[in-house]
């Protein structure tokens, strides 16, 4: 069986909000090390990989592997019934057909319980290759989100160029073109505003901005985001969690 407790329901609410627009139904695999999810979005452009280590829970118990086949939007609907600071418990018996969620306020004078029906989902898993990326950029998650939102007014695609001078985002559409360039920098007072670039060779890739905008909904999970790119390969975009991560593998646009 699975029994996992979080001190604040907001932790799971934010994670689910970060993936719900891309994923429909998917399996969450639970074992003694924690919860994991790997799923393609409906268009197969983004692969979402979520890891929630058992250390990230205030209490965690899972003696035997459990697969939770869930509709992510149904999970989001139920989670909306929890207050952000409620204590959240997830429970599922071995081979059960439901996930039980309880929400308690800190004084434990209100307890809500919801049972979510589980589904048998025949899901494809892909092998994510171990890769040394040509360029790695760590930057503010909010700044990345803002930059992409601005450029989406111009075009449906963004080109990202990374070289030793910095990272450049550009877009071109019917009304004209625009770009934002960030130089590597260290902000001693607000470390999350630093821009750190590690590079073995310059890279330029283009991406669909609508999907990118869905990815950056994870910005509430972490102050920084790690963007990794290699020419002609999907980008890896990672938001770190206290114990785990949400990673997106994002297929680029390729010149014909």
């Amino acid at each position: 069986m699975l029994e996992a407790k979080l001190d604040a329901a907001s932790q799971l609410k934010k994670i689910v909000e970060a993936i719900r627009d891309m994923l429909g139904e998917c399996n969450i695999e639970c074992n003694e090390t924690g919860l994991a999810l790997q799923s393609l979005d409906k268009s197969h452009i983004v692969l979402v990989s979520l890891l929630l280590g058992s250390d990230g829970f205030s209490e965690y118990r899972c003696d035997r592997g459990v697969t939770l086949g869930l509709n992510i939007n149904s999970l989001a609907t139920v989670l909306r019934c929890a207050n952000n600071d409620d204590i959240l418990t997830l429970r599922s018996e071995d081979r059960a057909n439901e996930l039980i969620l309880t929400f308690e306020d800190s004084k434990a004078d209100r307890i809500s319980e919801f049972n979510l029906r589980l589904m048998d989902i025949d899901q494809e898993y892909l092998a994510i290759p171990e890769t040394e990326y040509a360029a790695t950029v760590v930057m503010s998650a909010a700044v990345l989100q803002r930059t992409l939102r601005d450029l989406s007014a111009l075009s449906e695609a963004v080109t990202i160029e990374i070289d030793k001078e910095g990272i450049r985002f550009s877009a071109e559409g019917d009304l004209g073109k625009g770009s934002t360039h960030f130089k590597p920098c260290v902000d001693m007072e607000n470390a999350e505003n630093s821009i750190n670039i590690t590079l073995s060779e310059p890279v330029s890739l283009s991406f669909n901005l609508q999907y990118f905008s869905n990815i950056t909904k994870a910005s509430s999970l972490s102050s920084t985001v790690t963007l990794q790119m290699t020419a002609g390969m999907p980008a890896q975009i990672e938001y770190k969690l206290p114990s785990g991560h949400v990673r997106y593998y994002f297929a680029p646009k390729i010149e014909d």
């Binding site: 393609l40 268009s43 452009i45 892909l126 092998a127 014909d256």
Partner: peptide, 14 residues
């Protein structure tokens, strides 16, 4: 012209 690729073109089933 650029066309959108899919993840399946890069990552294979194990």
């Amino acid at each position: 012209r650029a066309s959108q690729s899919t993840i399946g073109a890069f990552f294979k089933k194990p």
